[in-house]
Simulated assay, not measured.
Amino acid sequence: MVDVGIDPATGKRKQLTRTFDTLKAAKAEYARITNRRHEGTFVSPNKITVNEWLDQWLAKKAEDLEETTIYNYAVTLGRVRGKLGHIRLQELTEDHVETWMTWALREGRVRGGKAGTGLGVTSVEMSLARLKDALNRAVTRRLVAVNVAQEVTIPRKARKAERRTKKVLQPWNVAEVHAFVLAVKDDRLYAPLLLSLMGLRPAEVCGLRWSDIDLNAATLDISNTRTLMGNKTVVEKDTKSMAGERLLPLPALVREALKEFRATQAAEKLAAGEAYSGSGYVIVDELGAALNGRQLRVRAYKIMDENGFRRVRLYDVRASCLTYLANSGVPDHILARWAGHTNVKTTKKWYVKPDVEDLRPAAEAWGGLASLATPFSEKL
């Protein structure tokens, strides 16, 4: 029997009892436990399972993170729970995590595609990252001695195999954006769709209120978002980050479209009478009820399909805007501010995606280099 510390819940001394066949073995274990306790590395035995710890960890994280972020964490860890959740936390091994990762890459999909096929590398990597975070906290809480998932990584072969087979969706180029603008010019949601083309996130477009727009000063105050959680529940909250809260100037085209849309809504309110809800949001239906991101997306897809346009996500249109601004020489600090990012590195890494035509000036510049070259035979 050996003291292993104080129970934080009761304040009483905690003791651990072990039984051995020989006195020598008992003394060795006593010394090992005592030394680890003095070093601060001793972990008291417990029966907490992986699922139970993940529940506790998520509950604690929920005190600091947005509801939508916690939902995404829960979905991400849900991929882990089925295979690893029943295992006791202290019995979880690196082999367990490696085996789960291999299974997930080969046959871990249960939704969003054909069941039984492999999950994408990014999905598995996100699940691993969240599991590592949770296990790191378990180490800090002295629930486990080490993070057994810390060194588990996606094999390079798996990454390369996915790159060979996965089609990379390029954002719309300038010509495609122009064609889309012409196609939606007479659509009721012309103005909200132009806001998407300005590079606003779908949640920012849906969260805009008329009180956020100053048509006289031609400015747009982005401070509120409406996010669709689980494709069903609308969550209204502030912007994704402090940098996301920003005041943008309205391009003349968007300003005029918003003026027309406000006039349209005034006429709809007059026609509907008491049936009009008057929510105050910019993007609403004919009775004033706020529309969500899925409804905006469905309308955009319908327009794309009807006109034979290449289908892209509204979020990818954000990349079209930021790529064009970057190619047009907009300074980095302005580009990051427009995007709502703290650091322009984020903007350039994820949203600036030049296509082959964007690279054409580089080819022309190289042509100047080659034309200056003098053949060696002429020198002789």
Rank of each mutant, 00 (worst) to 15 (best):
G329H: 01
R164T: 07
G199P: 09
G113H: 04
R79F: 08
Y190L: 06
A138K: 01
A275H: 15
W338V: 04
V139Q: 03
R163E: 14
L380W: 13
G230H: 13
R262E: 08
A266S: 14
L325Y: 03
T165Q: 14
S123E: 02
N327Y: 00
L105E: 06
L248H: 06
Y73K: 11
V184C: 13
L131D: 02
T122C: 08
L322H: 05
E67W: 12
I33G: 10
A319C: 04
T233L: 14
E260T: 03
R37W: 11
K24I: 12
A104G: 05
A271D: 08
L197N: 09
S328N: 01
P8F: 01
V2Y: 12
S127V: 01
R318E: 03
D238A: 08
G78M: 10
E162I: 05
S196F: 09
D64G: 06
R360M: 10
E151C: 06
G280A: 04
G329D: 01
T374W: 10
A115F: 12
Y281I: 05
K348G: 13
H333Y: 15
A31L: 15
G116T: 08
G108C: 03
R360H: 07
V148Q: 01
L270P: 05
G340W: 07
E162S: 10
L258W: 07
E67G: 07
P249S: 15
A9T: 06
L135T: 15
P249R: 14
S223C: 11
V181I: 00
L208C: 12
E151W: 05
G329E: 00
D355E: 02
D95A: 00
L335P: 00
L169M: 12
F261D: 00
G199A: 07
V312T: 03
G5N: 12
V184W: 14
L253W: 01
L169F: 10
T225K: 08
G82W: 12
R297Q: 04
Y281G: 02
